[in-house]
């Protein structure tokens, strides 16, 4: 079975900026894959190269086994892209936009599927409204719908929830999850790391055009993040404990590996005569992973890079 997406040694330079630097990446069919990185890391350039909007300087990209340059018709038929920019054609209604988009893919009489998409994205009541009349959130839904008109097996969403309300996020993720369960491969970029953590089974992180992390979400969390005991003390934290703890906004955070470490930790605090005002257990989270990978603790990043190679 061919990979949903295969990216091999892809580099792209814009003037003095190395937007992508020898990226190797494979997304398997049926995966819910996260592509993370700070602004300017190269996520959108990579997606654009995959969609044929940008031509890579070196390397190759394929969608469902079809090279995006030499076999671009098949590659594009298998790919649906939700662009990051909120773009629309002001001349047409929602339904016209979707019918036209279907036609670009050579699909006629697509009304049943268009109706289903409209229904699932909460757009049915706006089907005959002109695109200009829609709110930003509604326009975002239409962008998602336009990417789905040709039932692509691989769907790429470039920050689809940037600046949209909770209702749309829920509607969108519900629908995208269903598509994923039905076998569609999903690639998501987002700055909302909680979303990525909840949805994606595997995650790649880009930094300055380079792939700096690639693993299952579970492994990344295990490797770069830990449970932590978070507490606010009534007195001064004993010195022997501060070397393992970090303080932020009056809260001390102490990482631990197993829950059996919690009691001895609390006992040491009590023994030092330090009262506890408030206490909680922090779970490992992707934000911590992200920050650590991006800060690039050299040893860890090198270790990862070695694995990636």
């Amino acid at each position: 079975m061919s990979a949903a997406i295969r990216i091999q040694q892809v580099s792209k330079r814009f003037g003095a900026t190395q937007a992508l630097d020898r990226i190797d990446l494979e997304v398997r069919q049926g995966e819910f894959f996260g592509l993370l990185g700070p602004n300017g890391a190269g996520k959108t350039t990579l997606i654009s190269a995959l969609a044929g909007l940008v031509r890579a300087d070196t390397g190759s990209l394929a969608v469902m086994g079809h090279d995006v340059q030499s076999d671009y018709r098949a590659a594009r038929r298998h790919l649906g892209v939700v662009p990051q920019e909120l773009v629309f054609d002001p001349f047409f209604t929602v339904r016209e936009s979707l019918t036209i988009q279907s036609g670009y893919f050579g699909i006629r009489d697509n009304d049943n599927w268009i109706d289903e998409i409209l229904e699932n994205l909460g757009l049915a009541s706006k089907a005959n409204a002109n695109m200009r009349m829609l709110s930003g959130g509604m326009k975002r839904r239409v962008l998602v719908a336009q990417a789905l008109v040709h039932r692509p097996p691989v769907i790429v969403l470039d920050e689809p929830t940037a600046g949209v309300d909770v209702e749309l996020r829920q509607t969108l993720w519900h629908f995208i999850r269903r598509l994923n369960e039905a076998g569609h491969t999903i690639v998501l970029t987002t700055h909302y790391l909680e979303e990525a953590e909840n949805l994606c089974t595997r995650i790649a992180m880009l930094k300055a055009g380079r792939l700096v992390a690639l693993d299952t979400t579970e492994n990344l969390l295990r490797r770069f993040s830990a449970h932590s005991l978070r507490l606010r003390t009534g007195g001064v934290m004993p010195e022997q404990l501060t070397c393992d703890a970090a303080e932020s906004g009056g809260w001390w955070s102490m990482p631990f590996d197993g829950f059996d470490e919690v009691e001895p930790l609390l006992a040491r605090i009590r023994a030092a005569g330090c009262g506890i005002d408030d206490l909680e257990i922090g779970k490992p989270d992707l934000e911590e992973v992200f920050v650590r990978v991006m800060q690039g603790q050299p040893a860890e990043t090198n270790e990862l890079n070695a694995e990636l190679r």
Binding site: G52, L53, V81, V87, Q101, Y104, Q146
Partner: peptide
């Protein structure tokens, strides 16, 4: 919105 024309085959 030129992307709508550039993304299809």
């Amino acid at each position: 919105n030129i992307v709508f024309v550039l993304l299809p085959p």
